[in-house]
């Protein structure tokens, strides 16, 4: 690990201002992903700004009947919150499908959104990776590369990494909004749909955040009810990243929302696919995967996603 200096901050706008003014500074909250990457020298910040003292660790009702989840709310606390379990069960299910008990006790809401891909070529500093070292190439797409876990849609010639979060997939199905504060103190709200960026030619740019901008909360709209589920398919039954996951909200009239994890650089959902839900999994997945560019090794994910959604829909219909 490279040497770095360290400070604690006391207010959100001050934290953002500090991050903008100090070269190569990073926020640290739970640290479960950042420290791992620092040990591997994939992340090499010169300065860490510890935001754990900001107090943004409460879950509160909003004026429109939704919830505001402070950025420092830990994954365990969020999953176990009575309002979340009752009104947003897809979120509890997604959180509990991710990581381990130890990690969920530390991992934060904001940090979960900002975690980096687990693409093995991003992790191996001896390999070419445009996300880690822009312009170096994408070893994951070289002949003979191991790509069965990587993305099939929304990917580019520069990068086929997936976003690893389960939580974000459920939040995408729930139309979550990310609240932030800028270095100048102004705040803004970014729909989660627009928060993560597709790789295109710049896979190193992963989110809509500006330099220094700090996530303060994630808000959920008023509960929408319906049958909610999170179905995750992985190589072992616990403590593994998704090959494919499906967050489903299905209303009694057959309408609803579906978001996919494990297949794309961001939680994968679109309005046209949602509208096709009454027609079944095949129609929905044809729409969600219409621009897919899979590799030979990960082509199976398209069929697996359709079957996973079919299974979730069957369960929702009882």
């Amino acid at each position: 690990m490279r040497a770095f200096s360290y400070e604690k901050v006391k207010n959100p706008a001050g934290a953002a201002a500090r991050a903008a003014e100090v070269a190569n500074a990073k926020f640290v909250a739970g640290g479960t992903n950042l420290l791992d990457l620092m040990k591997l020298e994939i992340e090499t910040p010169l300065h860490l700004i510890d935001v754990n003292g900001l107090g943004l660790d409460r879950i509160e009702g909003t004026d429109d009947g939704g919830l505001r989840i402070g950025t420092l709310v830990r994954n365990t606390a969020l999953a176990a919150d009575e309002r979340v379990k009752r009104d947003y069960p897809v979120l509890t299910r997604a959180l509990m499908a991710g990581a381990s008990g130890q990690l969920r006790n530390k991992a934060t809401t904001g940090g979960n959104l900002l975690q980096r891909t687990r693409c093995p070529y991003f992790y191996d500093t001896a390999m070419a990776c445009n996300k880690r070292k822009p312009g170096s190439g994408c070893a994951a797409q070289a002949p003979g590369a191991f790509s069965r876990q990587l993305g099939v849609v929304g990917v580019s010639e520069a990068c086929i990494a997936t976003h690893p979060s389960d939580m974000a997939v459920a939040m995408r199905a729930l139309d979550a909004v990310v609240e932030t504060v800028m270095p100048e103190g102004e705040t803004r709200a970014i729909p989660l749909a627009d928060f993560h960026l597709l790789p295109g030619h710049t896979p190193e740019v992963e989110t809509a955040l500006k330099p220094g901008e700090l996530i303060t909360a994630v808000t959920l709209p008023a509960p929408v009810g319906g049958h909610q589920s999170y179905t995750k398919v992985r190589d072992r039954s616990s403590y593994a990243f998704a090959l494919v996951s499906v967050a489903l909200i299905r209303q009694p009239d057959g309408s609803g929302a579906v978001a996919l994890g494990g297949v794309a650089p961001k939680p994968w959902r679109n309005a046209a696919a949602d509208k096709l839900l009454p027609e079944g999994a095949k129609a929905v997945m044809a729409e969600l995967m219409k621009d897919a560019r899979p590799t030979e090794q990960n082509r199976y994910k398209i069929k697996l996603a359709e079957r996973t959604l079919a299974s979730a829909l069957n369960e929702a219909k009882g």
């Binding site: 640290g31 479960t32 420290l35 791992d36 510890d50 365990t76 130890q102 990690l103 530390k106």
Partner: peptide
């Protein structure tokens, strides 16, 4: 694995100064 303020964590993924 050990406990921090009563909750289990991976002590390898946390800084002492935090």
């Amino acid at each position: 694995t050990c406990f921090v303020n009563g909750q289990r964590v991976n002590s390898c993924l946390s800084l002492a100064v935090m």
